[in-house]
Amino acid sequence: MNHKLEIRGVTQVFSSEEGEVKALEGVNLEVRPAEFLCIIGPSGCGKTTLLRMVAGLEQPSSGEIILDGKPVRGPSPDRGMVFQEFSLFPWRTVLRNVEFGLEIKGKVEGKVKGKGGGVSGKKERREVAEKYIELVGLRGFERHYPYELSGGMKQRVAIARALATEPAILLMDEPFGSVDAQTRNVLQEELLGIWQRTRKTILFVTHSVDEAVYLADRVAVMSARPGCFVKCLEVDLPRPRKRTSVEANEFREKLLMWLSLERSKAACIF
């Protein structure tokens, strides 16, 4: 099977004044095209570090990350990222936030070709941005500044912004961690809708069992420091899923068991 993303033997060692800390050790993971994969684990297990390495914001001490057959060297718009913290540019309106990636892309392409074309044109840029704003359900808010938006709306804009450059994969680092429970449910539902419409590959980091069971095709369970995967579970529940169904509950129990297993230090299986 051809993989969208491959993580091969990735180890990450942070050195500090007190000595070296191993955050990740020999991590392997394969993500299939158009798959929704959740990484779950306790805080401090290195799941965010792993995601940041896929984004190119950190370099692994050893090992390789391969996207579409090409090794990841640094950050690039072909990997969209949604951060846990609110990350909108506060001086830009919703529309201009979503346009940001296209604007930069236009600058790069304009330099290469000498003259702007494609998404570098102002009008095309606007059209693409409006399409994604519509996708996340924020039509009518184009001219609002981030300070005028609620937490959930901010994260929707961040999703639209990450998608606007049409990345090969969408990386999400506990994106709904700082919104209230109701909004969180709504956002999860909407994210599934977006995923089904765009057929994007999504790598989603969370520490919430409920979230993983509701969203994922597969859940990769990570152990604490040094982090590695102890189990990868197929979520064989039909969609649309019901949060309170018996099957979902059974799966939740299975997942919780694997999470508690890792605390008693199960061996890393892959």
């Binding site: 950050p75 690039s76 990222m81 951060f83 540019f89 940001f100 930069i104 990450a162 450059t165």
Partner: peptide
């Protein structure tokens, strides 16, 4: 930091950008 990193992920590579 998160704004700088957001910039990087969206294509702002290099100090100048």
């Amino acid at each position: 930091k998160v704004l700088v990193e957001t910039g990087k992920v969206l294509g702002c590579i290099g100090d100048r950008k």
